[in-house]
């Protein structure tokens, strides 16, 4: 490969090499790398250690949310005044609260609430946001204009404040939280999908497909869906921690799920009264698990975004 000194190499070359090279020997072996897009994405995702950590944590947290409450003899609501505020020990692994309820069981019960709200919010956001944004972007023109004005007004409202207001009106509870989160939560997704659709509608390869006689259906299926699904999945993944935070926030304000149902927010709220008394486990465990859950979804969502958008990878 290195440049040899001209004289030496020229004289070393055997004379019989000065014959025409057969055509077939002129071909270079072509290394074809036929990895599909999704295989590529998965490869990048699993190469990202932080994202994999996030995924593993999500799986573990989900498993524990399902089985955790059954691992002890306590239920999330069984009280035992005699055992109030006991430090973590062999019966109360994470200690107990002032009513003698088991913090371990309640933490995993809270995980159910948080994960359920996160998933429900993400799904509803998906359905409303994709429909609204898709219609707006695809139809364009006047329809788009009107629909986007509405979104603009809603976008101009402070999100969590509106949720608080809705909760005040609708009253606390698991399902009202989901409704309140859904009423405002889809806006970001709608804007995202509309933007993607508009961009793709005018993309040259879509135009090319149209020129070649591709039907609307085919264009949506072959071009729009595969190209928009990445950002949509990322947005959904990152909605989950936002929703989990919102639930905890509302529960902390007393607007969330109601006693005796446990959620990380209500547990933290209960701990506020004993914060300077040394019952550290009352705050520590719900605080730790809500942070861990948000961490897991955030890093997984970030990893997913980086994997889907190779351009942004630095």
């Amino acid at each position: 490969m290195e440049d040899r000194s001209p004289k030496k190499s020229a004289s070393n070359v055997p004379d019989e090499w000065f014959v025409p090279l057969p055509k077939e020997e002129q071909q270079e072996t072509i290394h074809h790398k036929g990895d599909s897009y999704w295989k590529d994405v998965m490869g990048r995702l699993f190469a990202n250690k932080l994202a994999v950590t996030g995924l593993i944590l999500i799986i573990l947290l989900t498993i524990m949310a399902i089985i955790g409450p059954f691992l002890t003899e306590h239920t999330y609501r069984s009280q035992s005044i005699l055992n109030s505020n006991t430090a973590p020990n062999s019966t109360y692994w994470f200690g107990s609260d002032e009513l003698g309820r088991d913090v371990f069981t309640r933490v995993w019960y809270g995980a159910r609430v948080s994960l359920f709200i996160g998933l429900a919010a993400a799904l509803i956001e998906f359905v409303i946001g994709v429909t609204y944004g898709g219609v707006s972007g695809y139809r364009g023109g006047k329809v788009d204009n009107v629909m986007m004005r509405i979104v603009d007004v809603l976008y101009g409202l402070p999100y969590l404040l509106v949720v608080v207001l809705l909760m005040v009106v609708m009253g606390p509870g698991l399902f009202t939280i989901i409704i309140a989160l859904s009423i405002t939560g889809w806006i970001g997704m709608a804007r995202l999908v509309r933007g993607q659709v508009l961009q793709l509608k005018n993309a040259e390869y879509v135009l090319a497909s149209r020129v070649l006689g591709g039907s609307n259906n085919r264009i949506i299926r072959k071009h729009l869906l595969p190209n928009t699904s990445g950002p949509i999945i990322v947005s959904m993944t990152l909605t989950i921690p936002t929703a989990i935070f919102a639930e905890a926030f509302l529960s902390f304000l007393g607007l969330g799920v109601q006693a005796p149902v446990a959620s990380w927010g209500t547990m933290a709220n209960d701990a506020l009264g004993v914060i300077q008394t040394g019952y550290w486990w009352r705050l520590f465990f719900p605080a730790f698990f809500i942070s861990l859950t948000m961490f897991a979804f955030n890093v997984f969502g970030d990893g997913l975004r980086d994997a889907l958008d190779p351009k942004m990878r630095k």
Partner: peptide
Amino acid sequence: YMRCDYAMKVCKEVAPPR
């Protein structure tokens, strides 16, 4: 050498001198 009309065996094997 791969695109050359006049490629010889030597072209594939040894870099041409100046």
